[in-house]
């Protein structure tokens, strides 16, 4: 009963919030609604019994990724509305819906196969975190280490890409001194 109510509440809210993310003209609104939608997505994970995945979603997505986006937004002018030249929104609705439907059907078709069986079944009486840990560190150890190396590479790439010329301001014209900007403002 509660599961049903929670499911419908979470799905309605996530769909609404992600629609705001996709349709909004303001970067700040889009980012905030994306963060809220991700919190509700972790609610789905808790309903489904994937507790550890839900906590990881909260820490990594809502914590780290959103903080990274908000730091990056300080480099761009986030307060003004984005002007976009949109070509025929109805066509994009139809095309997006149709291609998403085709993709989902293609990838969901094997799930309805009856011969499917559990490769690493969950154990009764063992918490989700223990179960995940055992499978992750025995069967998926090599992908885990590769993912760790990939995160290290991404960190170095991020530092090198964003760290160049950090002493120069992006939004301010460096050829003009601060005093001149101030006098220009005074003249206005």
């Amino acid at each position: 009963m509660y599961e049903t109510i929670a499911f419908y509440l979470f799905s309605a809210l996530t769909i609404g919030l992600f629609l705001i993310t996709v349709m909004s003209k303001n970067v700040l609104y889009a980012m905030t609604s994306l963060a809220a939608g991700m919190v509700l997505i972790s609610g789905f994970f808790f309903i489904l019994g994937a507790d550890f995945l839900g906590v990881v979603q909260l820490i990594v997505y809502v914590g780290a990724v959103m903080a990274l986006y908000s730091f990056a937004m300080m480099f761009f002018d986030a307060t003004k509305d984005i002007k976009e030249k949109n070509t025929n929104p109805a066509l994009i609705f139809v095309l997006g819906g149709l291609s998403a439907l085709a993709l989902v059907l293609m990838f969901a078709a094997p799930i309805y196969n009856k011969s499917i069986q559990a490769l690493y079944p969950m154990h009764k009486g063992v918490g989700n975190a223990q179960d995940v840990g055992i499978v992750l560190f025995t069967k998926y150890l090599v992908p885990f280490e590769v993912a760790a190396v990939m995160l290290l590479v991404a960190m170095i790439a991020g530092i090198i890409l964003a760290g160049k010329k950090m002493d120069q301001s992006l939004t301010k014209d460096t050829s003009v001194d601060d005093d001149e900007i101030l006098t220009q403002k005074d003249a206005k």
Binding site: V60, Y69, L151, V153, G158
Partner: peptide, 16 residues
């Protein structure tokens, strides 16, 4: 989730 995190780190660097 791990891939998404590294994608965001590299992608935002490229955006900057």
């Amino acid at each position: 989730i791990a891939i998404a995190a590294s994608e965001v780190a590299v992608g935002l660097g490229i955006l900057i």
